Simulated assay, not measured.
Amino acid sequence: MSIVGTSLKPFQATAYVQGKFVDVSDADVLGKWAVFFFYPADFTFVCPTELEDLADSYEELKGLGVEVYSVSTDTHFCHKAWADSSPAIGKINYYMLGDQNHTISNNFGILREGVGLADRGTFVVDPDGVIQLVEITPEGVGRNAAELVRKIKAAKYWREHPGQVCPAKWEEGAETLAPSIDLVGKI
């Protein structure tokens, strides 16, 4: 069953962000675009490369009105220790949610059963709390923040321009399509 088009489920968690511990809930997410960026564990190998890549795109995402929440089943204390010891993780200015009770991972269906770790998954939630984009990769395959930014721009465009859709490889400013009977068989 697809999670795309379903609503964000309730959660409460503590995050590490910019040197502080803060409480975050589903209510804090509503009203803006949000990325939930799940990864298996702190102090690992592919994860810091992905989180650093996302940190490098964070200002652009903020400029688009998008907040980022990275999530692992580690605690917020573990996130702080990782940020203090890793130059890559120390660059992060977005929220690092602790999900040690597995609520958020289970809400998104991304928890590996019997393992206690989240799979490598990205979920984009619109301002109404509806999941619009999902990407899940195997543990050994890292994600690309530039492609995530492109997809978010397309999702935002599609939401803001009813009747228009974004074709493959669509970039901001490029032509879109207006689906109609006249296009059937002509693309």
Rank of each mutant, 00 (worst) to 15 (best):
I187F: 14
A178T: 13
A178C: 03
I92W: 03
L64W: 04
G98S: 02
C166G: 04
T44P: 04
N144E: 07
G31A: 09
W170F: 04
A145E: 01
Q12E: 15
A88P: 00
R159N: 09
S57D: 09
L97E: 01
K169A: 13
D53C: 06
P40M: 15
I92C: 08
T44I: 07
F77C: 01
V24W: 03
C78T: 12
T137S: 08
K156G: 00
T75I: 06
G5Q: 08
G163W: 08
R150H: 01
Q100H: 09
V71R: 00
V165W: 07
G19I: 14
K9T: 05
V24P: 01
T122L: 14
N106R: 15
V165P: 00
D182E: 14
E67Q: 13
P48K: 15
P127T: 11
C47F: 06
A13P: 01
Y69M: 06
N93E: 14
G185M: 12
D126E: 09
P127H: 13
P179F: 13
G63Y: 03
I136R: 05
F108R: 02
F11E: 03
N106C: 01
M96A: 03
P48I: 10
S72A: 09
K9V: 10
A41Y: 07
A178H: 09
P127R: 09
Y16H: 08
A174I: 01
A174M: 15
S7G: 14
L183A: 05
G31I: 11
Q12H: 12
M96G: 01
S180N: 06
K20V: 00
S70G: 09
A155K: 08
T176E: 07
V46Y: 00
G121K: 10
S57V: 02
D119G: 10
I131L: 15
K156E: 08
W82R: 10
S72D: 04
K151F: 06
L117Y: 05
Q132A: 12
Q100E: 10
V17M: 13
D53R: 11
V115H: 05
P40H: 14
G140K: 14
E113S: 05
E160L: 15
A154Q: 04
V149G: 02
M96E: 00
I187E: 06
S2Y: 03
G90K: 09
E171N: 13
Q100Y: 11
F108D: 01
F45R: 08
D53Y: 07
D126M: 14
E171D: 08
E160W: 09
F38G: 00
L111C: 02
D128Y: 10
E60L: 10
G129C: 09
G63V: 06
G114D: 04
I92G: 00
